[in-house]
Design a protein around this nucleic acid. Sequence first.
DNA 1: TATTCGTGGCT
DNA 2: TAGCCAAGAAT
Length: 330
Amino acid sequence: MGTTTSAGGTPTAVDTTLADVLVPWFRAHARDLPWRRPGTTPWGVLVSEIMLQQTPVARVEDPWRTWLERWPRPSAMAAAPAADVLRAWGRLGYPRRALRLHAAAQAIAADHDDVVPADVETLESLPGIGTYTARAVAAFAHGQRVPVVDTNVRRVVARAVHGRAEAGPAASRDLADVEALLPGGDPGARDASAESDAAAVTLAGHHEDAATMSAALMELGATVCVARGPRCGGCPVVELCAWQRLGRPAWDGPVRKAQTWAGTDRQVRGRLLDVLRGAPGPVTAEALEKAWLTDPAQRARCLDSLLVDGLVEQMADGRFALPGEAGDVG
DNA sequence: TATTCGTGGCT
DNA sequence: TAGCCAAGAAT
């Protein structure tokens, strides 16, 4: 049952919380994703979280399996050339993530005895691991009671808690909002019935529920409380939802700018890197020029930015290659 | 705080 | 069909 008493209610009246509904709902309805299966290592969880940054679940499943088979431990990946890592990353997008994961694996192997750290602060110090990913690993790989806030969670909280159609831009307040929803919080705030059940429902049990609650909030946002066309008819918490209660008011906040793609540097960088991924080794400058004929100046600028980012390296003979390819300048 | 950084599926 | 959107991080 819930841990908040009804204002003005009888001593036995207790409000049902989101966690009361969502934790059981998640246990019954969660998608069977490979990184959620028993036996998944913290390293497997970390790899999944990096791959899932801005990338749909459906595109991650296969590369994740292949990745963990090839590099089952951080030290295994750390020993591989960056070029191999970038080819294994394939077309997942944002290839700098692959480079950062490579660097993180090297740091874990060298400084953490090949064990993925469990505390948020240490995780955040690793390349490519920010506010979300550090907490996701701490919670899902190590069972810690920390708020895990991604775009799904922010949308669910915006609707169910704040009664708004959209989350708006991320804010530092988001973490506290979600922390307040996790079971097993401030013991002093618990009601008498929870205390009386203390023998059966230990603090440790609440901690496990907290990680499940975070996964449940993400799952709800990903499968039911989606950005466009939320399926409120099938929502397990529709009766607790503030947005429903208010009659589902439209979003009146700032409209976020549309993503452009055609003709952007991102498209050109993608073309150039695709040529290098597809080649068995170094390629000539001429081969890269063919990848983008529209605007030679833009092509040159993008190739330079790839060199700066460490996604491409130039050989002594002037050819270009993925980083760490044998014989390159470095 | 606002931009930049890939890729592809869905409506 | 042309946006819209996806388990963010770094700067």
